[in-house]
Computed example of a mutant assay.
Amino acid sequence: MRSRPAPSALAVLAALTALAAAACAPQEADGTASGPSSGASSAGSAATTTAASCAPAALATKARGKLTVGTDTPAYAPWFQDDDPSNGKGFESAVAYAVAQRLGFAEKDVVWQKVAFNNAFAPGAKTFDFDINQVSINEDRRKAVDLSSGYYDVRQAVIALKDSPAAKATDLAGLKGVRLGAQVGTTSLDVINEQIKPDRPAAVFQKNDLAKSALKNGQVDAIVVDLPTAFYITGAEVPEAKVVGQLEAAGGTGGTGGTGAKEQFGLVLDKGSPLTSCVSRAVDALRRDGTLAALEKRWLSDAAGAPVLK
Protein backbone atom coordinates (compact mmCIF):
# COMPACT_ATOMS: atom_id res chain seq x y z
CA MET A 1 0.00 0.00 0.00
CA ARG A 2 1.45 3.34 -1.04
CA SER A 3 1.60 6.13 1.49
CA ARG A 4 -0.33 9.37 1.20
CA PRO A 5 1.42 11.86 -1.16
CA ALA A 6 3.86 14.07 0.71
CA PRO A 7 4.76 17.71 0.07
CA SER A 8 7.89 18.39 -1.98
CA ALA A 9 11.05 17.01 -0.46
CA LEU A 10 12.71 20.39 -0.14
CA ALA A 11 9.66 21.96 1.45
CA VAL A 12 9.63 19.23 4.09
CA LEU A 13 13.34 19.66 4.71
CA ALA A 14 13.01 23.42 5.01
CA ALA A 15 10.31 23.02 7.64
CA LEU A 16 12.40 20.52 9.61
CA THR A 17 15.39 22.83 9.51
CA ALA A 18 13.31 25.75 10.74
CA LEU A 19 12.09 23.69 13.71
CA ALA A 20 15.66 22.86 14.69
CA ALA A 21 17.09 26.35 14.09
CA ALA A 22 16.34 27.69 17.57
CA ALA A 23 18.75 25.18 19.12
CA CYS A 24 21.46 25.56 16.49
CA ALA A 25 24.88 27.06 16.77
CA PRO A 26 25.16 30.25 14.68
CA GLN A 27 26.31 29.87 11.10
CA GLU A 28 28.58 32.03 9.03
CA ALA A 29 27.17 35.13 7.45
CA ASP A 30 27.18 33.48 4.01
CA GLY A 31 24.68 30.89 5.30
CA THR A 32 26.99 27.89 5.36
CA ALA A 33 28.47 26.32 8.44
CA SER A 34 32.20 26.11 8.95
CA GLY A 35 34.45 23.65 10.75
CA PRO A 36 36.41 20.52 9.95
CA SER A 37 34.59 17.55 8.45
CA SER A 38 34.36 14.46 10.62
CA GLY A 39 34.93 11.87 7.90
CA ALA A 40 35.99 13.60 4.69
CA SER A 41 38.76 12.19 2.55
CA SER A 42 42.06 13.86 1.75
CA ALA A 43 40.53 15.49 -1.33
CA GLY A 44 39.97 18.64 0.68
CA SER A 45 39.23 20.07 4.10
CA ALA A 46 35.80 21.47 4.92
CA ALA A 47 37.53 23.89 7.26
CA THR A 48 39.40 25.61 4.42
CA THR A 49 36.73 25.41 1.73
CA THR A 50 35.30 28.83 0.94
CA ALA A 51 31.66 29.59 0.33
CA ALA A 52 32.49 30.78 -3.19
CA SER A 53 34.16 27.49 -4.15
CA CYS A 54 31.04 25.59 -3.04
CA ALA A 55 28.60 27.76 -4.98
CA PRO A 56 26.62 25.75 -7.58
CA ALA A 57 28.26 27.56 -10.51
CA ALA A 58 31.71 26.67 -9.15
CA LEU A 59 31.03 22.97 -8.60
CA ALA A 60 32.44 20.60 -11.20
CA THR A 61 29.40 18.30 -11.37
CA LYS A 62 28.99 15.59 -14.00
CA ALA A 63 26.28 17.59 -15.77
CA ARG A 64 26.35 21.38 -15.71
CA GLY A 65 23.70 22.79 -13.40
CA LYS A 66 22.65 19.30 -12.24
CA LEU A 67 23.56 17.10 -9.27
CA THR A 68 23.71 13.41 -10.17
CA VAL A 69 23.03 11.10 -7.22
CA GLY A 70 23.48 7.33 -7.37
CA THR A 71 21.82 4.54 -5.39
CA ASP A 72 21.10 0.83 -5.77
CA THR A 73 17.94 -0.73 -7.13
CA PRO A 74 15.61 -1.75 -5.68
CA ALA A 75 15.80 1.17 -3.24
CA TYR A 76 14.75 -0.35 0.08
CA ALA A 77 12.68 1.10 2.92
CA PRO A 78 13.24 2.70 5.36
CA TRP A 79 16.03 4.40 3.41
CA PHE A 80 13.71 5.03 0.45
CA GLN A 81 10.01 4.46 -0.17
CA ASP A 82 8.10 2.90 -3.08
CA ASP A 83 11.44 2.07 -4.78
CA ASP A 84 11.54 5.70 -5.96
CA PRO A 85 14.54 7.71 -4.71
CA SER A 86 13.24 10.86 -6.42
CA ASN A 87 10.11 11.21 -4.26
CA GLY A 88 11.95 12.60 -1.22
CA LYS A 89 10.52 9.89 1.04
CA GLY A 90 12.72 7.72 3.24
CA PHE A 91 15.80 8.77 5.19
CA GLU A 92 18.43 8.62 2.44
CA SER A 93 16.24 10.24 -0.20
CA ALA A 94 15.54 13.08 2.22
CA VAL A 95 19.23 13.38 3.15
CA ALA A 96 20.23 13.53 -0.53
CA TYR A 97 17.82 16.40 -1.16
CA ALA A 98 18.98 18.15 2.01
CA VAL A 99 22.60 17.97 0.82
CA ALA A 100 21.52 19.18 -2.62
CA GLN A 101 19.75 22.14 -1.04
CA ARG A 102 22.84 23.01 1.01
CA LEU A 103 24.90 22.93 -2.18
CA GLY A 104 22.42 25.27 -3.86
CA PHE A 105 20.63 22.82 -6.15
CA ALA A 106 16.86 22.91 -6.56
CA GLU A 107 14.87 19.69 -6.26
CA LYS A 108 14.32 19.65 -10.04
CA ASP A 109 18.09 19.75 -10.61
CA VAL A 110 18.74 16.46 -8.77
CA VAL A 111 19.12 13.54 -11.19
CA TRP A 112 19.01 9.97 -9.83
CA GLN A 113 21.09 7.18 -11.28
CA LYS A 114 20.97 3.42 -10.62
CA VAL A 115 24.27 2.12 -9.24
CA ALA A 116 24.83 -1.39 -7.87
CA PHE A 117 25.99 -1.34 -4.24
CA ASN A 118 29.44 -2.86 -4.81
CA ASN A 119 30.05 -0.73 -7.91
CA ALA A 120 29.57 2.46 -5.92
CA PHE A 121 32.85 2.07 -4.04
CA ALA A 122 34.80 -0.11 -6.49
CA PRO A 123 37.93 1.45 -8.04
CA GLY A 124 37.42 3.50 -11.18
CA ALA A 125 35.81 6.70 -12.39
CA LYS A 126 32.21 7.30 -11.35
CA THR A 127 29.28 8.57 -13.38
CA PHE A 128 27.59 10.13 -10.32
CA ASP A 129 28.49 13.19 -8.24
CA PHE A 130 27.81 11.26 -5.05
CA ASP A 131 26.21 7.95 -4.16
CA ILE A 132 24.01 7.35 -1.10
CA ASN A 133 23.37 3.72 -0.23
CA GLN A 134 24.25 2.80 3.38
CA VAL A 135 27.96 2.70 2.60
CA SER A 136 30.00 2.53 5.79
CA ILE A 137 33.07 4.71 6.07
CA ASN A 138 36.30 2.73 6.38
CA GLU A 139 39.91 3.01 5.33
CA ASP A 140 39.76 0.15 2.81
CA ARG A 141 37.04 1.93 0.85
CA ARG A 142 38.92 5.22 1.05
CA LYS A 143 41.69 3.62 -0.99
CA ALA A 144 39.35 3.51 -3.99
CA VAL A 145 36.89 6.38 -3.44
CA ASP A 146 36.31 9.52 -1.42
CA LEU A 147 33.81 9.37 1.45
CA SER A 148 32.05 12.34 2.98
CA SER A 149 31.50 13.10 6.62
CA GLY A 150 29.12 10.61 8.23
CA TYR A 151 25.43 11.35 7.84
CA TYR A 152 24.18 8.48 10.02
CA ASP A 153 25.57 6.62 13.06
CA VAL A 154 24.64 2.96 12.75
CA ARG A 155 24.78 -0.39 14.47
CA GLN A 156 24.33 -3.83 12.98
CA ALA A 157 21.58 -6.21 14.11
CA VAL A 158 20.77 -9.92 13.95
CA ILE A 159 17.41 -11.14 12.61
CA ALA A 160 16.18 -14.70 13.10
CA LEU A 161 12.95 -16.61 12.60
CA LYS A 162 11.12 -16.75 15.91
CA ASP A 163 11.28 -20.56 16.04
CA SER A 164 14.99 -20.70 15.13
CA PRO A 165 17.72 -21.59 17.67
CA ALA A 166 19.29 -18.23 16.79
CA ALA A 167 16.23 -16.41 18.15
CA LYS A 168 17.12 -17.60 21.65
CA ALA A 169 20.62 -16.10 21.61
CA THR A 170 21.34 -13.54 24.31
CA ASP A 171 25.03 -13.04 23.51
CA LEU A 172 27.55 -13.58 20.72
CA ALA A 173 28.41 -17.05 22.02
CA GLY A 174 24.81 -18.09 21.35
CA LEU A 175 25.27 -17.29 17.65
CA LYS A 176 28.50 -19.20 17.03
CA GLY A 177 26.82 -22.50 16.19
CA VAL A 178 24.06 -21.14 13.91
CA ARG A 179 24.04 -20.54 10.16
CA LEU A 180 24.48 -16.82 9.51
CA GLY A 181 24.22 -14.80 6.30
CA ALA A 182 24.70 -11.26 4.99
CA GLN A 183 25.03 -9.26 1.80
CA VAL A 184 28.43 -9.31 0.10
CA GLY A 185 30.68 -6.30 0.58
CA THR A 186 28.84 -4.99 3.63
CA THR A 187 29.80 -4.16 7.19
CA SER A 188 27.13 -6.70 8.13
CA LEU A 189 29.32 -9.46 6.67
CA ASP A 190 32.38 -7.98 8.42
CA VAL A 191 30.51 -8.12 11.74
CA ILE A 192 29.79 -11.83 11.27
CA ASN A 193 33.40 -12.65 10.41
CA GLU A 194 35.13 -10.37 12.90
CA GLN A 195 32.79 -10.04 15.88
CA ILE A 196 30.52 -13.10 15.95
CA LYS A 197 33.12 -15.48 14.41
CA PRO A 198 30.72 -18.39 13.80
CA ASP A 199 31.82 -22.00 13.65
CA ARG A 200 30.94 -22.24 9.94
CA PRO A 201 31.51 -19.72 7.13
CA ALA A 202 28.77 -17.16 6.61
CA ALA A 203 26.44 -17.48 3.64
CA VAL A 204 27.03 -14.54 1.28
CA PHE A 205 24.29 -12.99 -0.88
CA GLN A 206 24.41 -10.47 -3.71
CA LYS A 207 21.31 -8.64 -2.40
CA ASN A 208 19.50 -8.32 0.91
CA ASP A 209 16.39 -9.64 -0.87
CA LEU A 210 18.22 -12.93 -1.43
CA ALA A 211 19.35 -13.00 2.21
CA LYS A 212 15.73 -12.47 3.36
CA SER A 213 14.53 -15.28 1.08
CA ALA A 214 17.19 -17.60 2.49
CA LEU A 215 16.06 -16.73 6.00
CA LYS A 216 12.40 -17.42 5.20
CA ASN A 217 13.28 -20.69 3.46
CA GLY A 218 15.41 -21.94 6.34
CA GLN A 219 18.66 -21.90 4.37
CA VAL A 220 20.18 -19.75 7.13
CA ASP A 221 19.18 -19.38 10.77
CA ALA A 222 19.82 -15.64 10.96
CA ILE A 223 20.99 -12.70 8.88
CA VAL A 224 22.80 -9.51 9.83
CA VAL A 225 21.70 -6.10 8.54
CA ASP A 226 21.81 -2.54 9.85
CA LEU A 227 19.41 -1.86 12.71
CA PRO A 228 16.76 0.30 10.97
CA THR A 229 16.56 -2.23 8.14
CA ALA A 230 16.19 -5.00 10.72
CA PHE A 231 13.16 -3.30 12.25
CA TYR A 232 11.62 -2.76 8.83
CA ILE A 233 12.18 -6.37 7.71
CA THR A 234 10.66 -7.85 10.86
CA GLY A 235 7.80 -5.36 10.96
CA ALA A 236 6.75 -5.30 7.32
CA GLU A 237 8.42 -8.02 5.26
CA VAL A 238 9.15 -11.09 7.42
CA PRO A 239 6.81 -10.82 10.44
CA GLU A 240 7.67 -14.39 11.46
CA ALA A 241 11.18 -13.11 12.27
CA LYS A 242 12.42 -11.02 15.20
CA VAL A 243 15.31 -8.69 15.95
CA VAL A 244 17.48 -10.84 18.21
CA GLY A 245 19.64 -7.89 19.18
CA GLN A 246 22.11 -5.29 18.06
CA LEU A 247 25.88 -5.50 18.13
CA GLU A 248 28.24 -3.09 19.79
CA ALA A 249 29.90 -0.66 17.41
CA ALA A 250 33.05 -2.21 16.00
CA GLY A 251 36.34 -0.36 16.06
CA GLY A 252 37.55 1.97 13.33
CA THR A 253 35.92 4.94 11.65
CA GLY A 254 32.91 3.31 10.15
CA GLY A 255 33.88 -0.29 10.48
CA THR A 256 36.16 -2.75 12.15
CA GLY A 257 39.68 -2.02 13.22
CA GLY A 258 39.91 -1.78 16.98
CA THR A 259 39.84 1.95 17.74
CA GLY A 260 36.36 1.91 19.23
CA ALA A 261 34.97 4.58 16.90
CA LYS A 262 31.36 4.36 15.82
CA GLU A 263 30.27 3.12 12.41
CA GLN A 264 28.90 5.81 10.12
CA PHE A 265 27.40 5.89 6.66
CA GLY A 266 29.04 8.34 4.23
CA LEU A 267 28.35 9.63 0.74
CA VAL A 268 30.59 8.09 -1.95
CA LEU A 269 32.46 10.26 -4.46
CA ASP A 270 35.17 9.80 -7.09
CA LYS A 271 38.64 9.38 -5.65
CA GLY A 272 40.05 12.92 -5.45
CA SER A 273 36.73 14.50 -6.39
CA PRO A 274 36.71 18.32 -6.26
CA LEU A 275 33.25 18.02 -4.68
CA THR A 276 34.28 16.04 -1.60
CA SER A 277 35.05 18.93 0.73
CA CYS A 278 31.90 20.83 -0.28
CA VAL A 279 29.72 17.74 0.18
CA SER A 280 31.27 17.05 3.60
CA ARG A 281 30.77 20.70 4.51
CA ALA A 282 27.07 20.35 3.63
CA VAL A 283 26.70 17.14 5.68
CA ASP A 284 28.45 18.75 8.67
CA ALA A 285 26.10 21.74 8.50
CA LEU A 286 23.05 19.46 8.38
CA ARG A 287 24.28 17.60 11.46
CA ARG A 288 24.94 20.85 13.34
CA ASP A 289 21.62 22.52 12.56
CA GLY A 290 19.58 19.48 13.60
CA THR A 291 18.33 18.50 10.14
CA LEU A 292 19.89 15.02 10.17
CA ALA A 293 18.49 14.32 13.64
CA ALA A 294 15.03 15.47 12.56
CA LEU A 295 15.11 13.30 9.44
CA GLU A 296 16.33 10.31 11.43
CA LYS A 297 13.48 10.73 13.91
CA ARG A 298 10.95 10.97 11.08
CA TRP A 299 12.07 8.09 8.90
CA LEU A 300 14.01 5.53 10.95
CA SER A 301 12.89 3.13 13.65
CA ASP A 302 13.73 3.66 17.30
CA ALA A 303 16.52 1.26 18.29
CA ALA A 304 15.82 1.36 22.04
CA GLY A 305 14.04 -2.00 22.06
CA ALA A 306 16.94 -4.03 20.69
CA PRO A 307 19.20 -5.59 23.35
CA VAL A 308 22.96 -5.39 22.84
CA LEU A 309 24.64 -8.74 22.17
CA LYS A 310 28.08 -9.03 23.79
Results as ranks from 00 to 15, higher is better:
111 V>G: 10
111 V>M: 09
111 V>I: 07
112 W>T: 14
112 W>I: 08
113 Q>R: 08
117 F>N: 09
118 N>Q: 13
119 N>K: 11
119 N>D: 12
119 N>Y: 11
121 F>L: 00
121 F>D: 01
126 K>T: 04
126 K>E: 01
129 D>T: 04
129 D>A: 02
130 F>C: 02
131 D>A: 15
132 I>V: 02
133 N>A: 06
134 Q>M: 15
135 V>W: 04
136 S>A: 12
136 S>G: 06
138 N>S: 07
139 E>D: 15
139 E>G: 06
142 R>K: 14
142 R>W: 04
144 A>N: 14
144 A>G: 04
145 V>M: 03
145 V>C: 04
146 D>V: 05
149 S>C: 08
149 S>P: 06
150 G>V: 09
154 V>S: 04
156 Q>Y: 09
156 Q>N: 11
157 A>G: 00
157 A>I: 10
161 L>I: 10
162 K>H: 13
163 D>C: 06
164 S>C: 11
165 P>N: 12
167 A>K: 03
167 A>C: 09
168 K>T: 00
169 A>W: 09
172 L>W: 03
173 A>E: 14
175 L>D: 00
176 K>R: 09
182 A>T: 11
186 T>C: 00
186 T>H: 07
187 T>C: 03
188 S>H: 00
189 L>R: 07
191 V>Q: 08
191 V>F: 12
191 V>C: 01
194 E>Y: 00
195 Q>V: 03
195 Q>S: 15
197 K>Q: 11
198 P>M: 08
199 D>P: 04
202 A>F: 03
202 A>V: 03
202 A>Y: 01
203 A>F: 15
203 A>L: 01
205 F>D: 07
206 Q>F: 13
206 Q>S: 00
209 D>A: 15
209 D>M: 13
210 L>Y: 02
210 L>M: 14
210 L>D: 15
211 A>M: 07
213 S>T: 13
215 L>T: 01
217 N>Y: 13
218 G>A: 05
220 V>N: 01
221 D>I: 08
221 D>S: 04
222 A>C: 10
222 A>S: 04
223 I>V: 15
226 D>S: 15
228 P>Y: 05
228 P>Q: 09
229 T>M: 09
229 T>N: 14
231 F>A: 01
234 T>D: 00
234 T>K: 09
237 E>C: 13
